[in-house]
């Protein structure tokens, strides 16, 4: 794992995203801090509603809900993105930080060809002519392993299969060689074989371009395959983070343990049912006092009434009161 000796590519500090509502300010992302080093693949894991997508949108400056309140700091290459004027932000978006969305069908404008949409982004950030931008689109589609890119470039999104659409989406995100790619569940809508191809593509991307990747997913299997570091989110907070091997070998937080238990074992007897974490994550409106995972936790005890900070354990950070005791042992 590349240690953050020099300045990280992305440093998020105390990021809070709240929504004004009738019941007061609801905090969806709660004092979140993390860094992404150059060339690193960081997996952000959590159930739906854990604030992982919202975090990525915040980094892109794409939260446009008039009732959203965003505080904290997001630094890209040392430059503060929070509060940056729209014009400046626009130059970063798509050019230096690009994003891939979960459902490429609805994330692409249905009335334009994929080539047109890729060229549009290329032209927004460079002085290429339309012809050159189109040629770039063909090249990119070819790089993404799309057969007959010169023909596919004139296809509309609905004419492509799910996997090809996601390739087109990734080609578009990569069109300006971004240093940071945020992938928001890019494989969730795809079947398993295509999923594997897309993951390979993401790894290849890091290898060829040296880009950093923030990979958002709820699939621990996907995390096991590509991540360098893992950040587990629950109810808008980091509950555990650390290098993948450490986190998989010795998960510290009961929630991480629960997530890891839900991966089907590769060897040995197959359990009749995979163990599941009982209950559902709390909505921002009725988060419990103290540890947010408390109500679903099997190890709950008195000290969980206070929200635990992140404790350091080896190379992991864990937000659980069990850790300080266990760390000594």
């Amino acid at each position: 794992m590349p240690e953050a000796a020099d300045e990280p590519l992305l440093r998020v500090e105390d990021l809070c995203v709240s929504f004004r509502s009738e019941r007061g300010l609801l905090r969806a992302v709660d004092r979140l801090s993390f860094t992404v080093a150059p060339g690193e693949i960081l997996a952000v894991v959590g159930e739906s509603g854990s604030g992982k997508s919202l975090t990525s949108l915040a980094v892109m400056g794409l939260i446009d809900d008039p009732n959203a309140v965003l505080t904290g700091s997001i630094r890209y290459r040392g430059r503060e993105l929070v509060g940056l004027p729209r014009r400046e932000l626009r130059k970063v978006r798509g050019d230096e930080i690009a994003m891939i969305f979960q459902d490429p069908m609805s994330a692409m404008t249905p009335v334009y060809t994929i080539g047109w949409q890729i060229a549009e982004q290329v032209q927004a950030h460079s002085r290429l002519t339309r012809r050159q931008a189109r040629a770039r689109a063909v090249d990119l589609l070819g790089e993404m392993g799309m057969p007959n890119p010169a023909i596919q470039v004139d296809r509309y999104p609905h004419q492509l299969s799910g996997g090809m659409r996601q390739r087109a989406m990734i080609a578009m995100a990569l069109s300006c060689n971004p240093s940071l790619l945020i992938a928001d569940e890019p494989t969730t809508a795809l079947d398993v074989t295509v999923q594997a191809q897309i993951l390979r593509l993401v790894e290849q991307l890091r290898r060829d371009h040296g880009s950093s990747i923030v990979f958002i997913t709820h699939d621990m299997g996907v995390v096991a395959e590509i991540a360098d570091r893992v950040m587990v989110m629950y109810a808008g907070k980091v509950v555990e983070r650390g290098p993948k091997p450490d986190l998989f070998a010795t998960p510290g937080h009961p929630y991480t343990v629960g997530l890891l238990d839900s991966i089907p074992p590769m060897a040995g007897a197959k359990p009749r049912r995979l163990p599941a974490i009982p209950g559902a994550p709390p909505s921002p409106a009725d988060r419990p006092d103290g540890c947010p995972f408390g109500p679903r936790c099997a190890h709950r005890h008195d000290s969980c009434r206070v929200d635990p900070p992140l404790y350091r354990r080896g190379r992991q950070d864990v937000s659980c009161t069990l850790v300080p005791e266990g760390a000594d042992a």
């Binding site: 949108l57 892109m60 794409l62 446009d64 729209r86 626009r90 130059k91 970063v92 978006r93 798509g94 050019d95 690009a98 994003m99 969305f101 459902d103 609805s106 994330a107 692409m108 404008t109 249905p110 009335v111 549009e120 982004q121 927004a124 950030h125 578009m172």
Partner: peptide
């Protein structure tokens, strides 16, 4: 409210272009 408007913004397009080429066009 469509996802593709978010994509258009993520691409770094100006608001005017997002409006005319993406929202209005569809």
């Amino acid at each position: 409210h469509e996802d593709f408007i978010r994509t258009a913004r993520a691409k770094g397009l100006g608001e005017g272009r997002v409006l005319v080429r993406h929202a209005l066009r569809t």
